[in-house]
Design a binder for these strands. Sequence first.
DNA 1: ATGAAAGCGCTAACAT
DNA 2: ATGTTAGCGCTTTCAT
Lengths: 341, 341
Amino acid sequence: MKQPYKLATARDVADKAEVSVSTVGRALADDPRISAKTKSRVKEVATQLGYVGNLLARQMRGAKSNLIGLMLPDIRNHFYATIAEALSECCSSNGYQLALSIANDPETEARHVTELISARAAGIVIVPTANPKRETQDLLNNFPHVQLLRRIEAYNSAWFGINDEDCLCEGTKHLLSLGHRRIAYIGGSRELSTGKARWKGFRRAFTEMGIEPDHAIEIFGPPSSTRFGADAMNDLLNRPEPPTALITGTIRVTQAILEILHQRGISAPDDISIVGFGDAPEFKWWGQGLTTLCMPIEDLATTCGLWFLFHLDAEKPTHLQHSSLARATLTIRGSTAPLAG
Amino acid sequence: MKQPYKLATARDVADKAEVSVSTVGRALADDPRISAKTKSRVKEVATQLGYVGNLLARQMRGAKSNLIGLMLPDIRNHFYATIAEALSECCSSNGYQLALSIANDPETEARHVTELISARAAGIVIVPTANPKRETQDLLNNFPHVQLLRRIEAYNSAWFGINDEDCLCEGTKHLLSLGHRRIAYIGGSRELSTGKARWKGFRRAFTEMGIEPDHAIEIFGPPSSTRFGADAMNDLLNRPEPPTALITGTIRVTQAILEILHQRGISAPDDISIVGFGDAPEFKWWGQGLTTLCMPIEDLATTCGLWFLFHLDAEKPTHLQHSSLARATLTIRGSTAPLAG
DNA sequence: ATGAAAGCGCTAACAT
DNA sequence: ATGTTAGCGCTTTCAT
């Protein structure tokens, strides 16, 4: 057989129920003009044939798409998993369907954006890569979309993000006020808006506290790689004068360093004070509890989703210069302590 | 403006390039019949207009869909996040696009299945809910799909899963051989194929070792709730005679109990021996390391994806009675020790 | 080497 | 109360 799964069409239902296609359409839509008798017959035949209306055909007739594209760099990151869940919930309760694309480089990103547009999705929620292709930019700027977390200036769209700079600044100040000076920062690439802001926050803490960052150590790397964080941490620990404190700039890095510290039997805050970026549940019970920079990521995603869907439903353009900043906060647990000696 | 984001059609390109629609189609598809000159003109106009072909229209003409539906109960579960990532990667490198649906109850599941079929997805990869509606079953049995992890007998489809029973049996035997008898099992509902198999494995360990399960304690609950695991654990600890060992049957439960134990300052293996289901990265560094039941979940998902896509591409029916069992294994770390006294 | 026309499955305007 | 027809954007005969 060639078509093992051929689905019934309105035509098939019409033939079997001995009415016209339009009667089928109307009966199934509960149009008041159709007699109760015909309706019930049509509905019965439809069920019998397992008829499921073809959304593609409907959309060609002008129905709006129910597909929302979500483009993320990495779904195993707790951060992004939370976003996916929140948006999925949001879409689902508003009649939309989430199409998930994982793209961590500009080429894959371009491909997926093209595909989503080609499928005439209703809109795209995107955490952009660091340097999107020109092509991607042109496409997106003529298509409903929102940026989440990371922000590309060239996009004429709304953005929902975190006050990354303040957040890192607060965390760093905490370490400085405990007397630490040889503080290391391991964060994401400064090519990302988030990576850049977080790094600026780290620097600003020194400035605002009037301390020269002479002994600060800064390491940057790809945000979605566990490997990078591990390597950076090992490098730090192998130095003749390892830092007395460390603050991280991505969740993946936080997870990586926790594992390395555990492997090497180094404990916080005795050997080193740690402020971890992000708030995965397990951070609570790492050692004596990890001091973390927590962000209301679920709220952020839900807000973003609701705003976006509202605008789509209202057929308002989504490129109003809207931007929304969620406040991240420092949660102090056991991994940070005053500098000994 | 009514259509803030109107995309160009082949018609628009044709008009501007002063050719017919069919020439546009052929030029863009690099049909050899079109002259090089015309081709380049058409392509230029297309780029200029930001033309992106309408996939819906193509599919109506018979092109096959590139959409694969993935239905999961819970994306924040590390287990399922891994699956989503693996399948996304798999789809992406075979020209497919992943549509993610989170459904944890039969109604939502039915809705999402209908939507995916209505959108004429190419196929569905599903981790079914415990008791799918009859409607869902009928729909799926006439639509290309595979079952992942959980298995519904009524589906005439292939299944890719884990040897749940052996896995729990092995973990339980480990505890029994350490001398434990008052062993608690906290697992997922036995209405799920997985929950049932794991429970049977727990029981079988006693049988095979010739030990009466007089002192075994069994607690079952919803698999995607963190709350349930926490409550169950607290209940156990508040008993006059708490168990000396515990084995869990879902990742969520494992995560929940680790947090409770940490909160209450109870440590393994001194106060209680623990075998945790699943292998989230943080389990390595809980206390002195958690003894876990590890499953090759990424491999499983990839295998499943490759098999499914291959069958879709070949237009083979996917309901060949294929089933694939991945082996889970016990990794012994610091949380289990011989029963004292 | 290119154009005209049919048709995929559906809905809505226009008959009857 | 129901049928007929046109057309959404595309590909694919079938003409020229």
